[in-house]
Write a protein that binds this DNA or RNA. Structure first.
Lengths: 170, 170
DNA sequence: CGCTTCTTTCAGAAAATTGTGAAGATGAGG
DNA sequence: CCTCATCTTCACAATTTTCTGAAAGAAGCG
């Protein structure tokens, strides 16, 4: 089935498997340090470093030495976070997991959901403690900061798209 | 010793302890979900919700029901992340931990160290996989994105300072 | 100097998280 | 309608993380 010499061109394929693995593990380690779970981090890094930006479950399992269950869990997490998308190649039940550059930048920056929940907690705090109290004012200012950031991020992403086009050409 | 009726005016003090605790726990929960450790998150939220934006170790321990050791560990982490600063009130060995709004916004956004490490991992990846390969190009684009964001964040914080002054008055 | 008060460090118990094998589900193709 | 390939769910074992009590370390104050 899977041609170990790399006819697929995905994953480590025929390439310098050593270099791929070095990158995957070191980048994943950074993601872990930033709070991401280990397995999703490794899967994500592997996809980033894959030739086509997409790999099947089997390829991921083989390259990272993890069980199908592990791949499944990692991928579920990643797609909930909108960091990867899944595609079915027609005619097979094999699923491919793909990282769209654009998509994952968005996911990273548009912590929209996060900002919203933080905002809610802060709003309730202001209400509960009283707008007039020192603590209430502090929370209100923090809330204002998050709302500000939320607005700015959208604009920043727009600038990024322009910037990116200039460099890489859409 | 510590006047349990709240003469200090810090922490929950004479205020609606119920409301304070509700905010602390719910905001801390959000921070935890975003990847922060539980105890630092609770300590930080408690400081945010305190009257003076500062509390002593004993006050934190009492309000959050955690041991001095727990406070110590949490505070060490928070000050490493530049989210709180420590002050000695002269004449006592009591230490006060304070959250400066400005300071912690900076800490939150200037993920400088993080971005730098991610950048390094990506740069090595590009070198290892080859700039000409599809994977190399993908990593290079990701790297460019981080460098872009890094630059933007500084500008954003500057705009925030202006915006904030307008609303809250320096 | 030594007493007292507060903080930090450390080893270990308790709890949470992680990754696996095995069994179950899902759907293409005969 | 059955089979085969694939993915997912679940219960559990192993690891890791978290928090504590106890003891050691600092620093004011007499």
């Amino acid at each position: 089935m899977t041609d170990s010499t790399g006819a697929t061109g995905d994953g480590a394929g025929g390439r310098d498997a050593e270099a791929v693995s070095r990158f995957v593990e070191s980048f994943a380690a950074q993601l872990v340090e930033a709070g991401m779970q280990r397995m999703p981090a490794r899967v994500f890094a592997a996809l980033l470093a894959s030739n086509q930006g997409a790999m099947t479950s089997a390829e991921l399992g083989e390259q990272l030495r993890i069980s199908p269950a592990g791949v499944s869990g990692a991928v579920r997490y990643l797609s909930q976070q909108h960091m990867v998308s899944r595609e079915r190649e027609p005619g097979s039940r094999r699923e491919r997991y793909r990282v769209h550059s654009d998509q994952w930048y968005e996911a990273l920056t548009s912590r929209e959901a996060v900002l919203k929940r933080w905002g809610n907690a802060l709003r309730e705090g202001v209400a509960g403690l009283g707008e007039r109290t020192p603590a209430g004012r502090r929370l209100a200012e923090t809330l204002a900061f998050f709302e500000f950031v939320d607005g700015e991020l959208a604009a920043m992403m727009e600038r990024w798209r322009v910037h990116r086009e200039k460099i890489f050409g859409g």
